[in-house]
Write a protein that binds this DNA or RNA. Structure first.
Lengths: 190, 190
DNA sequence: GTAGAATTTCTAGTGGTGCTAGGATCGTCT
DNA sequence: AGACGATCCTAGCACCACTAGAAATTCTAC
């Protein structure tokens, strides 16, 4: 029994090691630099061990993304709870979201852009993404008016996401980024 | 002289053939199915000829994307000019944008998501993307109020783009898609 | 303590990718 | 006809994600 548990513990530890290594690699050099070879070398194991933990490279990306959701949720929560009034809270949460996307672009991509098979946001979603979405929703709630809260939050989320991805992809000039954000948030805090 | 021009004409024709084949392939099976081998086979040439026309696969994607921008611009224009009043025009243009993204998802990705090195939207952008953006701007203009028209259009664009990509990536449920779009457009046609 | 069983890990390979060097082939001009 | 030049293809590179089967390690039981 003890041997079994020790092995499981070691396995779990190694799995965390793989995820951490993948995250370091991706944040430093982007997703195109994350190959199974480099990742295996980084954790000092051979490639096949990766496949004993994860179904494939996509599953590793998904695991990294889930970590990202936890971070994002924490940052959004901090922004929301330290604001003076509801309007400021929404502005701060929006700014925190944008800052996260700018600070960790590759991680953000894994969470929202890359086609990893995470369930959609909503009640049935995994805990971390759900929590991140919940922070956004609570920031919107006081200003929702008579509109459906969930849908309104999703719409604002779409706006933030679109601005971030278009800007980062070079489709929008960086100049004016702040003002676009303010414009968007303004339309949602009437 | 005539020989020269004939060769140039044939070259241009073949280039169009390549782009058309790439577009057919990508719209039928998605970007992961577009490999240089398959594309070369499709146009009945060997791989290296692709590289005599384009710097690499990314350049082919970019060429396909530019075609897409022309299509999008035309569809947005049709939606805008056939609407009765400004509010309806904005609603129709937004719906046309969403319909385009839903109808040609892979093409849309090449245009807006994939990292092809197109210059950013704005005055210095290539003609087709600029035209598409212009249609959006003209739809926004009558309802811009005192906000900066360009920034406001970019913000709305971000909202549309975000909703489309999040929905298509499985982060938002399809249910409620229409209502989210309506919510977004409503916030921009005050 | 040691032989055998079970599990874990690695070596080596498959079929794919984007891309390219160098030689064969073709049309063109003298 | 024969040489020149542009054009195109064959063959190959280095890399990718992923996997089968051998090797090594760990545990079990005598």
């Amino acid at each position: 029994m003890s041997i079994q548990t020790r092995r499981e513990r070691e396995r779990a530890e190694r799995e965390r090691l793989i995820i951490a290594a993948a995250r370091e690699l991706v944040e430093a050099e982007g997703w195109e630099a994350v190959t199974t070879r480099r990742l295996a070398e980084r954790v000092e194991y051979s490639q096949p061990v990766l496949y004993s933990h994860f179904k494939g490279k996509d599953a590793i990306m998904a695991a990294v993304a889930v970590e990202g959701f936890a971070d994002l949720a924490a940052e959004l929560r901090a922004a929301r709870t330290s604001a003076a009034d509801p309007r400021q809270a929404l502005a701060d949460v929006g700014a925190a979201y944008a800052a996260f996307a700018e600070r960790r672009p590759a991680l953000y991509d894994a969470m929202f852009t890359h086609a990893v098979d995470l369930p959609p946001a909503g009640p049935e979603a995994p805990a971390a993404p759900h929590a991140a979405f919940g922070e956004l929703r609570e920031a919107v709630r006081p200003l929702a008016g008579e509109d459906d809260l969930g849908l309104l939050t999703e719409t604002l989320w779409g706006g933030l996401h679109g601005l971030m991805t278009l800007t980062r992809g070079g489709r929008l000039r960086h100049e004016g980024h702040e003002r676009r954000l303010a414009l968007l948030l303004g339309r949602f805090s009437r």
